[in-house]
């Protein structure tokens, strides 16, 4: 498992019903591309996050497939519609099988 993987997500705390909000996500991950060579001259094996999803109350907002060409500490910015109060769930899937999760609640007033 990659070390020190820490998801960071920015979601507004409140929104109006049906409002479109912008979400920013960042996760610390070295995203080893499998193209680099180590000190011993051998290729460092690929180790990346290969999928990222965002759901709101079980409904999908965005689903991204990542390839090694995504930079270290993958960053995503996208918009989501908020029909009601609820919870955003963010999930990152690592090559090694680990799954990193984060949730953020939002209140509609």
């Amino acid at each position: 498992m990659a070390e020190d993987v820490k998801p960071r997500v920015k979601v507004p705390k409140t929104a109006a019903a049906g409002e479109v909000i912008t979400i920013k996500t960042l996760i610390s991950h070295q995203m080893e591309s499998g193209q680099r060579k180590g000190k011993d001259g051998n290729l460092i094996p690929r180790s990346i996050i290969n999928r990222f999803t965002c759901d709101f109350n079980g409904e999908n907002v965005i689903d991204v497939v990542l390839e090694p060409a995504i930079s270290t500490n993958p960053y995503f910015e996208f918009d989501a519609k908020v029909p009601a109060s609820g919870e955003f769930k963010f999930t990152w899937y690592d090559d090694d099988g680990s799954v990193y999760e984060d949730t953020k609640a939002i209140t509609v007033n």
């Binding site: 479109v20 909000i21 912008t22 591309s33 759901d55 709101f56 409904e59 999908n60 907002v61 965005i62 689903d63 991204v64 090694p68 060409a69 995504i70 930079s71 993958p74 960053y75 995503f76 910015e77 996208f78 918009d79 989501a80 519609k81 029909p83």
Partner: peptide, 14 residues
């Protein structure tokens, strides 16, 4: 997905 607020997305690439 169905709850995407727009068809805009940003990321950083190599």
């Amino acid at each position: 997905g169905p709850l995407a607020g727009s068809f805009v997305a940003s990321t950083r690439i190599r």
